[in-house]
Design a protein around this nucleic acid. Sequence first.
DNA 1: CCTTGATATGTAACCGGTTACACATTAAGA
DNA 2: TCTTAATGTGTAACCGGTTACATATCAAGG
Lengths: 325, 325
Amino acid sequence: MATIKQVAKHANVSVATVSRVMNKSGYVSEEAKEAVEKAIAELNYAPNRVARSLYKKSSNLIGLIMPDITNPFFPQLARAIEDVANQHGYQVVLCNTDEQLEKEQTYLVALQTMHVDGLIITTNHSHNPNYETLDLPMVALDRIVKAGIDAVVSDGYEGGKLAADTLLQRGATRLAHIAGPDHLKTVKRRTEGFVEVAGEKLVGMTESPFTFKDALKASQELFDHAWPFDGIFAANDVIAAAVLQEAVRRNIRVPEELQVIGYDGIELGEMTSPPLTTIVQPIYEMGRLATERLLDLIEKKDTRPREMLLPVTLLERHTTKRKER
Amino acid sequence: MATIKQVAKHANVSVATVSRVMNKSGYVSEEAKEAVEKAIAELNYAPNRVARSLYKKSSNLIGLIMPDITNPFFPQLARAIEDVANQHGYQVVLCNTDEQLEKEQTYLVALQTMHVDGLIITTNHSHNPNYETLDLPMVALDRIVKAGIDAVVSDGYEGGKLAADTLLQRGATRLAHIAGPDHLKTVKRRTEGFVEVAGEKLVGMTESPFTFKDALKASQELFDHAWPFDGIFAANDVIAAAVLQEAVRRNIRVPEELQVIGYDGIELGEMTSPPLTTIVQPIYEMGRLATERLLDLIEKKDTRPREMLLPVTLLERHTTKRKER
DNA sequence: CCTTGATATGTAACCGGTTACACATTAAGA
DNA sequence: TCTTAATGTGTAACCGGTTACATATCAAGG
């Protein structure tokens, strides 16, 4: 790789001039500019970002901290983030923490020492001391870390209500629910909304982690103890898929005997049989917004902390009955 | 963030000594060592990786180039890579190329100018000039770029044969197949193996991209034109899921009337109804091996190019019949 | 007592950019 | 004609580490 010195020599100017034409800063004569551009092209020169970072204290890197990219909700988020970042000349460093504070801490110092310009966090510890002391632009995504830190989340409360409303409207009279992990505030809101509208129609409820295996176990328990119910809302689509599979295994017809609604709107919901009705949050949009917000923060365009609550919508596939009229 | 100079001052030694104790290089007295360690702890010092990179020409960063993290095969790979990299003090930069040469090229120069130490490539253009001139350690994963570049792939040929064998053994007599994109050599091998064993039993065949929507369309076409068949092998699990859904929609009983086998062994296969029988490639293992190999290459432990062909296995879930005895 | 090698430490060059500052030239305005 | 501002360019300091090299001390061996 060529260096700026070689380019300068080749163009018969000083390194300062080369730097000036690259950054379009200061005064450069047309003549010099052309010579430099020619040299850059001929030497196939691209400036060393490490050197630039060192002086500028900015790396054009952003850190993406998530529990586990393997959880099918996150790839879409990652994709959106990466797309936007890339469009603005940033690259993203991927970090899986498994929600372990220690891993998180290790990553945090790694990211700091490599001088990332900002952080997107989709991991949640309400009382995580790591982030509080951190002097870095960051935005929380799908999670709420604490007041004062920007956040982009979907309206889980409305989503929960919408799920209950829909089930009721389609004729369900005995509702059940599988909630997500207790410590995720944004997930809890879904349950709160659902419970509020379901009222006394709620006949069974349990809780499950967001992995398919655990969700299957939870479903089985629910069927064993709370059956019969004719409408169920799961805290996310993976859990809903487990419910669906268990229903099929028990020869319960969906949606005739049991209607199922999930939450998220991931592609998985399209692949089940029958395809899953779900509350979709605008996942890509959320990733996009979070990243654009972060870039604004980095470039100091707007620094008042903000929380963005995005609306969710009902996507009717085939685990709910047709709307009655 | 503290700098090495501040640490040196605080410990009453020179920067060289501080550097020596951090890197455990050269001679340092016990006394000095303790003073430095105390200073490091008190100032909460962590060396600036950017500065280190500049001198050492090594960033402890590896680039991960994949078509689309949203495709459910890749997250597991990414996870494995990230895990191993992290264990060795490396971070990974995520790049989605959508198989577009131009995006790929942009990333390649970005990664080079930030001095990544190596590349893992899961993208495929047999005649991609970008990689040929590149003087960077790299290993291809699930793809074959060209001779002379390390590769880690699973044995698709054996996998295809295994799928056909299994279907035949379970009583299928009229076989069908949906192949993957034509330009992916590793995917083509699956088809070759299957066709070889299926022989004249093969009654229908088509081709599909790896997205669910396209796969659904392909399935419908296949059912429309080649039905009846009683055993089908799909080039990956996403396509198999589409076949499954279409079969359910047409009231074709699986596995009684139609047996289905996928390829990959991603978690999705567990979530369909019924759960999908599939040829599993050791995805995590492949990611792990590729990364370890790359780190060896980076640290110059072994530079003879190698190709690793990993064995696949049959995972019997419920889209195939019980083994006859 | 002198030589030699191991131990210990500091100074300064270096990595490859960016930019403050000094200096030169030219054109415009008084 | 003299000032002044705008234009153009190069030198060197700087970012924060690493390390080659110079220098100093000390113990062991002849």
